[in-house]
Nucleic acid binder design. Structure first.
Lengths: 213, 213
DNA sequence: CTTGTCGGTGTACAGACGTACACCCAAACT
DNA sequence: AGTTTGGGTGTACGTCTGTACACCGACAAG
């Protein structure tokens, strides 16, 4: 029952983060008022400053948290339960794993994906910057990941980054759509099918590619 | 010198639209205050209502205007100054035309592209809805466009839409980046190169595609 | 020449905003 | 046991918000 001081502080801190994430869905973090967050949490406005210096700083924490969810998804997409026997099997396993990770992970943290989609372009400048940076890191990780698959020798480093950019863009867009779909099963199925076929198309193009022209 | 009443009204209406488009760059339309717009235009706040019922309604006009710019770009991408002789030439002409249209049209209406990028996810609900609808129309147009090129017979209607979605997503993302790049020539060149190579990759994959598997 | 329309003005108000300041009191440290 | 720390409170301020209301004066129509 008794709560240590740090525990209590962490609890209201979490409550603030959750309230902010929920309230900014209406518009955007840039239009979110400190007072509204405080009211939702059940504290007086000035108490907000005990935890964050400003809404922007709170936003940076939400970016961190959201990309935590995204990285979890990516980790799932990279892990194969049964190692693919040949190149053809690898190809199919990559597509399956990626799309499965998408549809199972996004609904569990849909507010995070909606947050990224919104604030990437419309959030406060530091938040936009942080999101942009995180996405760049993810593209680079994906590029080095692709470089390791057999037959990637024909790909220049530049082209790997460009391919990664294409894939991240497409999949992030589907993640955002999925996060907006809620539990409308038909919409989810259509997004899943679209993601799967687009991955197929791009990877088939990739197999054909040769950076030397 | 003398100005008719309708001319004068249209002039301040344009001034309001321009001021709103400029001011909402700081955050988003949802966070834009009617008073700030009025002050920028040089009219009293209540005069705003002579032209628009609300900020949201103004936003719908800005959507219309912005997609006017986008459709101009698409028209340029579709027109070939010299008709391609063979399939290979058509392939290259499509890529060239599209990327050229991108880099010449986006800087001329960069505020419109930034507007679309921001408000697509973060704007007022009616604005988001309008943008989503316009993008869907564009994807459909592109799909019927692709259906007309020789060798598109192996593509199902569904797959054409999915391909169009992939292309529109990728190119819109590049347009937004380009609109943020300003006149930093090196950044512009990198985006141009990325767009060109991604189009290549996707279209090479498309040539290989067969909806019958 | 009269009359009506209508873009724009000025005042006014209630509410929300960020934040400065002084204060409280229970947990934590000495 | 005494003292410090720090999360939370309440009041108070100046500023900004949307919008209601009465008004003006020039252009357009009769």
């Amino acid at each position: 029952m008794t709560e240590s001081r740090v525990e209590r502080k962490e609890r209201t801190r979490r409550a603030i983060l959750d309230a902010a994430l929920e309230l900014c869905e209406a518009h955007t973090l840039a239009a979110l008022s400190l007072r509204a967050v405080a009211k939702e949490v059940g504290i007086v406005p000035t108490a907000f400053y005990r935890h964050f210096e400003s809404i922007d700083e709170l936003g940076l924490d939400l970016v961190e948290e959201s990309f935590g969810s995204l990285r979890e998804l990516l980790r799932a997409a990279r892990t194969f339960d049964t190692p693919p026997a040949n190149d053809r099997a690898l190809f199919l396993a990559v597509v399956d794993n990626s799309v499965n990770a998408l549809v199972t992970h996004v609904p569990k943290a849909d507010r995070h994906y909606r947050f990224i989609g919104r604030e990437r372009m419309a959030g406060p400048a530091p938040v936009r910057e942080a999101i942009r940076h995180q996405l760049e890191l993810i593209e680079r990780e994906l590029a080095t990941d692709i470089a390791r698959v057999p037959g990637a020798g024909r790909w220049s480093a530049d082209d790997l980054l460009i391919l990664a950019n294409l894939l991240v863009n497409a999949m992030l867009s589907h993640a955002e759509e999925l996060a907006l779909a809620g539990d409308r099963a038909d919409v989810v199925r259509r997004i899943e099918a679209t993601a799967r076929r687009q991955l197929h198309m791009v990877l088939i193009g990739a197999l054909q590619w040769d950076s030397e022209r």
